[in-house]
Design a protein around this nucleic acid. Structure first.
Length: 1013
RNA sequence: GCUGAAGUGGUGGAAUUGGUAGACACGUUGGACUUAAAAUCCAAUGUCCAUUAGGACGUACGGGUUCAAGUCCCGUCUUCAGUACCA
């Protein structure tokens, strides 16, 4: 009986599928446990070995929980809307739905072959209309909600309208736009319906607003900061400008405080919570209004340091600030406009990251200090961002380093308001241990007192108040793309209207091209059938638009995070019962929220924040029962690729005459001809590495010149020369040595290159066909480097070939064995033999050529010790998600049991259950060989019995001044004094001390003895 | 820049509360088996010094606390991730 992993794995994958072994029930006596992976975007490239890392970890945990008696929900699906499919569609004209479907098939096949215990019956796809119907539905709920700061939750918009009808908006305490005029009930009731709609839009949780975007006119589209390199588009290198655009936004800022507080209730890593805290960026301070001299306008700023109000010596506005054009004086106009134009070309990230370049322009205008009434010059500078706070700052150069640098650069006064602080070199930014001075009524106070008083005095003047500010900005929700959820929105006189939920889904229309229109409208602007008929409640042809009953539909689509912000609820419902609901009440009640969520840390401030926001909204509006979506969250690290390099020696020929004749055509051609004759040479790594180019050049000439200047080559050069005797070959030198990526599959565990394989490669073989490889000790060694796994670096390792060569169980074990789950670590296929050998050893423990060896022999004390040691360690490891160490533990256990020649069923049967979450196929196979007819997947996890591990003695390390010199075996129950006596009397101790008397002897029973002196 | 991680042999990594640094693997070297190769098995393997016994050094770098530091504290450097329209 041999370990035929291919057929074993196929057999059990088929068995699990046929028997629906991992189908979760919404009705069970067992406690529930919900394990979720961040679902994948199905890219065209398929899975590489890095992708399944988190899935393997969650699968181990899910399987472990089943052994522990839980009803486990472990679903999987696809985040199938997204840019790459759209890009591909633009390039090839293929419908993204078609390519997405193909990609999903590949993903599914690849996932299946790794043996995951997913309940595929609950699969979701965000691009499926039956799914995005509910994404659209949630969007409508957001539109129909406002945030009541008094009750601290979202309410239906009707409750707001009722308030307006009775009290106007004076008593309403809502999260809303800043620029809302007060109105009375009477005024409200007299507004036209359109006017009322405009006002309500300022309160809704999703609303239309002007937002700054990176606009690329040439591509006719908005770009992510990511897609901009040095101010031009990554694709095509077109100019990009900052531009305002009307877009849907999500009022996530309304939930800032709850998103912050909620972090204390969930079991996420501290670093992740810290990221979200910083992202939300709560700061307590004051808002201050500055009057602008000679204008009616005021400039609002937020400051965390109201105590430094007398240190203000200028103000800085973001160049995009709406007041800039208004207040700029005619003398400064030209400079200001030039500066604004320059800034528009810089990305926000650029402006944030670059603190060294200080730039700005004086507007010529002055603000009035609220207390001293002194004029304060108003500047613009791109270190102030329009989207942060109010887009304006009161600059206190003595207390803020950026303000300080700005003031120094432009020679603006830096008044010192800190008693005894030295500000000759830098600002004094600390709040602590300093008293305020030169500050009128704040003199002599500390930060706390002065802030309080400053706020009070500002309030008296009506020019400020205490305020809590959040860095968290409302999230832009519109995308000028095709491959996303359409909005259930049409426009009547430019006012957005929601389509009734009964008519959802609004399906993506067909377009002939996936590009923006010539007029710069999003791709949906190309759709011919994209208008809403309010009578038939259907999408109809655009030419029917009459603006009375038939209206244009929204042309934007939703962003990638829309579908992923609620999908975890969709899995809770059986696919069969999903028709009328996003998930039934019963299902939501039973599964509550995700118990364990595993995914990448790159989602820290995107998906993981937006999901929490949507869940809070859904809870407020009574659709779900939980405040948080993910109870426990683990970030898996990335698996990096180990790229392989060959070193190409680039030779260059210089014919005589080049210098005299210049580079005339003939010489050039001659040079080219010779260079063509020179072979391409690749040198093995160690022959090149560590040498400078000139060192290498000498070395090469000495050792290998014959390799490249063969008789043949020289003869050919002679032939060329015949036409012109003035040309003589004078030198062939090494121009440089290039490091070139080669496909990692041609490299073995010892970094040796399979030259024949490379030469026969379908894609690149031609490049190497005539190449000469200079070997060291008979082999060509490649260079290696760890980089992100990517197609372009040729370091992608496909799990398909791994599964074929070593099996899914080997892959699963090895991925876990690589290192801690959360850490980034390089992949090296060579190491998989370790995991594979372990499985072979495991198999041999149970079976040999004659069949099964397991029998009813009574286990020995050693057998039991090994087993229980393993149970204890593995259980603790799984609970703490330390999967790499449990793989080592299995290796140790199998090594020990092999040495002990253990054949006892009492040991080997529980061992299978321990290993089954990690290597489920081999475990199922041996389990059935042992006579079981049911799957191992719900077999109870073995119980740990400490009595097998009791030791009677301990190998004590005896150290001198902290350095371990020898060990000494002593009984566990020996007293501290006896240990000391025994150790001191030992001959090795005497030898170590060499006559010295120790100052101190430290004995920690059960641990260590340390002799000092 | 800001925010969050990480740095241990040739490589991936281990080290429960501060208590034997390098478990477990990969690789390398040597050996057994074999006509040979593969597979398998055995042994050695942090660096340096030493014939041995043994010793010195050693967890990115520089300090500190402690009987004892990979682990705690202060400072520095390097790498990676996120930075709001990649998913």
């Amino acid at each position: 009986m041999t370990y035929d992993f291919n057929s074993i794995e196929k057999k059990w994958q088929d068995y699990w599928a046929k028997n629906e072994t991992f189908k979760a029930s919404n009705n069970s006596d067992k406690p529930k446990y919900y394990v979720l992976d961040m679902f994948p975007y199905p890219s065209g490239a398929g899975l590489h070995v890095g992708h399944p890392l988190g899935y393997i970890a969650s699968d181990i945990y899910a399987r472990y929980k089943r052994h522990k008696g839980f009803n486990v929900l472990h679903p999987q699906g696809y985040d199938s809307f997204g840019l790459p499919a759209e890009q591909y569609a633009i390039q090839t004209g293929q419908h993204p739905a078609v390519t997405t479907e193909t990609n999903i098939k590949t993903y599914r096949r690849q996932l299946d072959q790794i043996g995951f215990s997913f309940d595929w019956s609950r699969e979701v796809r965000t691009s499926n209309p039956e799914y995005y119907k509910w994404t659209q539905w949630i969007f409508i709920q957001l539109f129909e909600s406002w945030y009541n700061n008094d009750t601290n939750k979202s309410e239906a918009i009707d409750t707001l309208i009722s308030k307006f009808e009775v009290e106007g908006n004076a008593t309403v305490n809502a999260a809303c736009d800043d620029n809302i005029e007060p109105f009375t009930a009477e005024e409200w009731n007299n507004y036209t319906s359109e006017e009322q709609q405009s006002i309500l839009l300022k309160y809704r949780l999703t609303y239309l607003a002007e937002t700054e975007v990176n606009w690329c006119p040439a591509l006719g589209t908005v770009l992510a900061n990511d897609e901009i390199v040095n101010g031009v588009s990554e694709r095509g290198g077109h100019p990009v400008v900052r531009k305002k655009m009307t877009q849907w936004s999500m009022r996530i800022s309304a939930y800032a405080e709850r998103l912050l507080q909620g972090l204390d209730t969930i079991d996420w890593t501290d670093s992740l919570k810290e990221s979200q805290r910083n992202w939300i960026g709560k700061s307590v301070g004051a808002s201050v209004s500055f009057n602008v001299n000679g204008h009616d306008d005021i400039i609002d700023v937020f400051t965390t340091r109201p105590d430094t109000i007398f240190g203000v010596s200028f103000m800085t506005l973001a160049p995009e600030h709406e007041l800039v054009s208004k207040i700029t004086t005619t003398e400064q106009k030209e400079a200001v406009e030039a500066y604004i134009e320059k800034t528009a070309k810089r990305s926000e990230r650029d402006r944030m990251a670059d603190v060294k370049t200080i730039s700005g322009v004086f507007t010529g205008a002055y603000a009035e200090h609220p207390f001293s009434k002194e004029p304060i010059p108003i500047w613009i500078g791109d270190y102030v961002l329009a989207s942060y706070g109010t887009g304006a700052v009161m600059a206190v150069p003595c207390g803020d380093q950026r303000d300080y640098d700005f003031a120094k650069h432009f020679d603006i006064a830096i008044p010192n308001i800190f008693e005894g602080a030295d500000i000759s070199e830098e600002a004094y930014a600390s709040k602590d241990n300093v008293k305020i001075t030169n500050s009128d009524f704040l003199n002599g106070m500390n930060y706390k007192k002065a802030s309080k008083l400053a706020i009070y005095q500002l309030e008296q003047l009506g020019q400020g108040e205490g305020k809590t500010n959040y860095r968290l900005r409302d999230a832009v929700f519109s995308r000028q793309r095709y491959w996303g959820e359409p909005f259930p929105v049409y426009y009547v006189n430019d006012k957005p209207q929601m389509i009734d939920a009964a008519h959802l889904p609004i399906r993506l229309p067909e377009v002939e091209k996936y590009l923006p229109t010539e007029e710069g409208e999003p791709p949906l602007g190309r759709a011919d059938v994209w208008a809403w008929d309010t009578e038939t409640n259907t999408v109809v042809s655009n030419d029917k638009i009459n603006n009375t009953t038939i209206h244009p539909l929204e042309l934007n689509t939703m962003p990638g995070w829309a579908g992923s912000s609620w999908y975890f609820f969709r899995y809770m419902e059986d696919a069969a019962n999903r028709d009328g609901v996003f998930a039934s009440e019963d299902a939501l009640k039973y599964w509550e929220n995700v118990d364990l969520y595993i995914g990448g840390s790159e989602h820290a401030t995107g998906h993981l924040l937006y999901s929490r926001f949507w869940v809070k909204l859904l809870k407020d509006r009574g659709f779900v029962n939980v405040e948080e979506p993910f109870k426990k969250l683990i970030n898996q690290g990335m698996i990096l690729g180990t790229s392989a390099f060959v070193y190409r020696v680039k030779l260059n020929a210089n014919p005589l005459g080049t210098y005299e004749r210049g580079d005339d055509k003939k010489t050039k051609k001659y040079t080219e001809e010779i260079n063509k004759l020179l072979p391409s040479i690749y040198i093995s790594k160690d022959l090149f590495e560590g040498k400078s180019l000139s060192e290498f050049s000498d070395y090469f000439k000495e050792n290998y010149s014959k390799t490249y200047l063969t008789k043949e080559v020289l003869e050919k050069i002679e032939l060329l020369k015949e036409n012109d005797s003035s040309l003589t070959l004078i030198s062939i030198h090494i121009q440089n040595v290039d490091k070139l990526h080669v496909k990692v599959q041609y490299v073995n565990a010892s970094d040796e290159l399979d030259i024949e394989g490379l030469k026969n490669d379908g894609e690149f073989g031609e490049d190497f066909k005539d190449a000469e490889f200079i070997l060291e000790q008979g082999v060509y060694k490649v260079g290696r480097d760890v980089e992100k796994m990517s197609k372009s670096k040729y370091n992608v390792v496909n799990p398909d070939s791994i599964c074929e060569d070593y099996g899914a169980d080997s892959l699963r074990l090895y991925e876990m064995f690589l290192g801690p789950l959360e850490q980034y670590k390089p992949w090296n296929t060579a190491g998989i033999t370790g995991a594979h050998n372990f499985l072979k050893k495991l198999w041999k423990l149970y079976a040999n050529d004659n069949g099964l060896k397991v029998n009813d022999t009574k286990p020995t004390a050693d057998n039991l010790k090994t087993l229980h040691k393993t149970i204890k360690k593995v259980e603790a490891d799984i609970e703490s998600f330390s999967f790499n160490t449990s793989v080592s533990t299995f290796m140790i256990a199998v090594n020990e049991l092999t040495t002990q020649k253990c054949t006892s069923k009492d040991i080997l049967e529980p061992l299978l259950v321990l290993i089954s979450p990690y290597a489920p196929h081999i475990a199922e196979e041996l389990w059935s060989q042992l006579g079981h007819t049911e799957s191992i997947s719900t077999a109870p996890f073995p119980k740990f019995d400490a009595s097998h591990l009791i030791e009677s003695s301990k190998e004590y390390p005896i150290s001198f001044n902290g350095k371990m010199r020898f060990t000494l075996e002593l009984p566990m129950d020996m007293s501290k004094d006896d240990i000391e006596k025994t150790v001191m009397a030992h001959e090795k101790t005497i030898a170590q001390l060499d006559g010295r008397t120790p100052k101190k002897v430290i004995v920690v029973p059960g641990k260590i003895v340390n002799i000092v002196g």
